[in-house]
Amino acid sequence: MKQARYGVDDSPIFVIDPSRCIGCEACVQACEECGTHRGQSLIHLERVDRSVSTQTAPMVCMHCEDPTCANVCPADAIKQTEGGVVQSALKPRCIGCSNCVLACPFGVPKYVAEFDQMMKCDMCTDRTSEGYAPMCASVCPSEALWYGTTEEFHHTRTGSLLDNWLFGRQHVHTKVFTVVDDLAGGPLDALAAPTGSWLDDPFGLETS
């Protein structure tokens, strides 16, 4: 394993491809074992809408270059590392207001009522700072959560890496990448109308 620090040495990258998620929740369990927030799972994994689809939505912190969460924090408790990793709220500073929870465009921070604190994915700082994959990526069987070099990605996977998002009129650049077929589509627009799929009518009930 390479001894490279995330975002600093530019070697490994963290990639999330939600379309590959099979909802096994291995990441949820692994996340709990991370040394920086033991006992508290900070990754999100939910069914998008079980009544119409088996699709699940995994979400880790995307580590925005200019994080909305940190900007709306009245206590200045959310800091970025040298490599651009957005860390959990500093415990002595966080006043538990939840501004970050509500403002994050990806819906990442969690308000943990028990501790009266915001906690969020910090990309397993204890691991990635030593060159190891984050806990979630180390257990994901379908590589929906993946950690490696760009060369490894292109050698073993299809699709293009994208780190550019659109939420309404707001452009967001992230340190974590996602995967799209084609970069020509521009930034990933969270509000883009979903495309029709045969899975909308899997048994041909509407067409037959």
């Binding site: 939505a57 509500l102 994050c104 819906g107 799209v180 589509g185 969270a190």
Partner: peptide, 19 residues
């Protein structure tokens, strides 16, 4: 926040040819 996560997943999934 839950719908934000769902929107991101659905939008990404559409960009890789669907779920």
């Amino acid at each position: 926040p839950r719908c934000r996560r769902a929107s991101v997943t659905l939008a990404q999934t559409a960009r890789v040819g669907g779920f």
